[in-house]
């Protein structure tokens, strides 16, 4: 849940991805916790892959920037992996 200390990074990535794709029901984000870093794995429908990556990776970079800014408050590192 989002609170004053910070948000929910898995939900954040899911919401962004759902806004970008044609098949939001196919969006899945799973969190793999490591000691210092949590990896968020994003899966979308094959036809939507280009939509979350964008031209020259611009959309993916934007998602990572938003994730990076949001996770600063959580004192934990998050990385986004877009799975093909």
């Amino acid at each position: 849940m989002a609170n004053e200390q910070g948000g929910d990074m898995r939900l954040l990535v899911e919401e962004i991805a759902k806004a970008l794709v044609d098949e939001p029901e196919q969006v899945q984000v799973s969190a793999v916790d490591g000691e210092q870093t949590t990896v968020l794995e994003l899966r979308v429908a094959p036809n939507d892959l280009g939509k979350v990556i964008g031209k020259q990776g611009r959309t993916a970079r934007s998602i990572r920037t938003i994730l990076g800014a949001a996770s600063m408050k959580l004192k934990k590192r998050y990385t986004l992996e877009i799975l093909e």
């Binding site: 989002a2 200390q5 910070g6 948000g7 990074m9 954040l12 806004a19 800014a69 959580l74």
Partner: peptide, 13 residues
């Protein structure tokens, strides 16, 4: 509607 979902999920003030 998009910002209403993203801003709280990210914990942004």
């Amino acid at each position: 509607a998009l910002l209403k979902r993203l801003i709280p999920a990210g914990g942004f003030q």
